[in-house]
Nucleic acid binder design. Sequence first.
DNA 1: AAGAAGTCCTGGGCGC
DNA 2: TGCGCCCAGGACTTCT
Length: 279
Amino acid sequence: MPELPEVETFRRRLRPLLLRGRIERVHFHPKTRLLRASRLSANQISRQVKGARVREMRRRGKYLILELDSARELVFHLGMTGKLIEVAPGQEEPHTHARFHFKKFDLLFIDPRAFGRIVLLPQGKVEALPGLAQMGPEPLGPKFTAAYLQKRLHGRRAPIKSLLLDQRILAGLGNIYSDESLFRAKIHPRRPAGHLTPNELLRLRRAIRAVLQEAIRACGTTIRDYEWAAGREGSFQNKLRVYARAGQPCRRCGDRIARERMAGRSTFFCPSCQNQRPA
DNA sequence: AAGAAGTCCTGGGCGC
DNA sequence: TGCGCCCAGGACTTCT
């Protein structure tokens, strides 16, 4: 489940390899569903990408964007189990949906559950893509302030956990880092978002940024599928305070970590440290 | 309008 | 040992 730290780790890994490289050709698996959000067919994309050089690789929320010198941009979303891995030319891997042939290696989009997406757009049209168009600010950027949170959460009665997962409010958080951030901010995930106090909003912003920065330093969280290069796992799973720790003792107070369903997702929290009332 | 619920997808873990 | 069942969840659609 690549969230911001995992996607950023892919970017940092791949950018030096891809920059100024030439995509000699592209091959999509005939049955891939990853192009479902694309208006272009596999053949059209292959023709338009062939021969282009990579000018830049950037990240927005959970999206990766390859800027090509042919005035086009290749947009990747990794979904739940997607990964971008470079392998020796021609090397086969299960669940490969797309293969980008570079001179010395192939870049594979591997995705067992096929929730990922690939879209090719003209330069400058990326920001109009549904999902990207309405996306909230980068949590590590300057626009993400407590005042911004206050404004966006005002009047909202949904649990804060649900709204942290909403990419229109904040870009890049998923289930793991939402739960970890709420724990560090000592906020109960079911608290109505609009009822958070100014002090809590300050703590939440601080916690989100700290958790994401730490997770990026750890190259992300490997629970099952995620690897940022062949055989290379993240290490943030060793630092998780609540996620996937139901029934285990809270590292801070020793109480048992609880698990409840919220917004259709498993939500982990410490019933003692994360109070239902403002604090 | 906001919020909840349904949908897609497949491998892994579990109970029997 | 093997089968069926449930679960994981990001983003989109549909409903109330």
